[in-house]
């Protein structure tokens, strides 16, 4: 598949009273047509800022994209003017956000909010856009769509609001859908409904998806490829099976080890990642994970490892070879039993 979007050395910073926050520190990746890429990271890892920078949805000031190129279908999005960008946002690149309550306008009907984009981008008239809006609401599984078009956001439940957001996102047949933690505010049974819906719509409509999340469980069932972010860097990248099967960055390994799994018998004890993420006002020159890393060697403190190819499909930013490390160390369980 051809690449739909190529991001090269993207760097975003925030200029605050306290100093410069190094939110995204030169990330490079690409997304192919129709592919689902998940960006995983904890709060402050730069996952949202990195993606919002693509369509320049960073508040400027204090934010600033200080470096990089974003090649979308032959155009550098970072060089477009506001008018040209508007033609792309919501049209060829659409977004759905975490909190469906605050991202819908409470004083406009759902119908009006969906038709707005259709009239703006596709030059539809009132009747056409209304008919299309009903079609979209039916597509995302809202019962009695025609009648609900004139309802306001507060008349919908959280899951239903997220469906409306998805309908709005899909209204102009985007080539790329950016989903920023779309299920984080929802309950698990509703989350399952939404994940199910998005995967079904993708197979029908064929758009590419960038799914931003902190939930490693959701990613496993959804993504083709995973990017793991830490302190504004991509630290590991590869196909989902490979990353989960044999993580090669200590941070990815640490994340997988620290979450309890529903399907495994009782893990004796969780293995947390000790310490805290670095202060992005004053990022270290060493590997940003070195202070928390159990595998740290001298070189980690001297030089921050770049994202290096370790096979034809995967990359990792680590000086240490983790290829012999098991994620779930079964011998440790036996040891615990022996001690008890």
């Amino acid at each position: 598949m051809a690449n739909l979007i190529e991001v090269r050395n993207l760097q975003t910073q925030f200029f605050t009273q306290d100093g410069i926050v190094h939110a995204v520190n030169g990330i490079t990746y690409e997304v192919a047509e129709g592919e689902t890429v998940a960006i995983v990271g904890e709060s402050g890892s730069g996952k949202s800022v990195g993606v919002m920078s693509l369509i320049r949805l960073i508040p400027e000031p204090p934010g600033k994209i200080v470096n990089g190129e974003v090649d979308f279908d032959g155009q550098d999005l970072l060089k477009l003017n506001e008018e040209e960008l508007r033609q792309i946002r919501g049209n060829r690149i659409a977004m759905i956000f975490q909190d469906p309550m605050t991202s819908l306008n409470p004083v406009l009907t759902i119908g009006r909010q969906i038709t707005e984009a259709l009239e703006l981008h596709l030059n539809m008239n009132r009747e056409e856009s209304r008919a299309r809006a009903i079609e979209l609401l039916e597509l995302v599984g809202i019962p009695d769509a025609g009648a609900r078009l004139d309802d306001y956001p507060h008349q919908f439940s959280g899951g239903m609001r997220q469906r409306v957001m998805i309908a709005m996102g899909l209204s102009c047949n985007p080539q790329l859908l950016i989903a920023d933690e779309p299920t984080t505010a929802l309950d698990v049974t509703i989350q399952a409904q939404i994940v199910d819906l998005v995967t079904r719509l993708q197979s029908e409509l064929g758009m590419a998806i960038i799914w931003i999340t902190h939930d490693l469980g959701v990613v496993a069932g959804l993504a083709d490829r995973v990017l793991v972010m830490y302190a504004g860097f991509i630290v590991e990248e590869g196909p989902v099976d490979v990353i989960y099967g044999q993580p090669r960055h200590p941070y990815t390994l640490g994340l997988l080890r620290s979450i309890p799994r529903l399907d495994l018998g009782r893990q004796k004890r969780l293995i947390p990642i000790e310490g805290l993420p670095p202060d992005l006002l004053d990022p270290p020159q060493s590997c940003p994970f070195a202070p928390r890393c159990p595998f740290v060697v001298d070189k980690c403190l001297e030089e921050n490892p770049p994202l290096m190819a370790i096979s034809s499909v995967r990359k990792s930013a680590c000086w240490v070879d983790l290829s012999d490390v098991e994620i779930y160390d079964t011998s440790a369980d036996e040891q615990v039993e022996a001690v008890a």
Partner: peptide, 21 residues
Amino acid sequence: LLSAVPIPDPQIEKKRQRIIL
């Protein structure tokens, strides 16, 4: 509820049948 909980393992996720309420 149990079937809706995602498991961080792509091999298992591919095979799982969810009960979608």
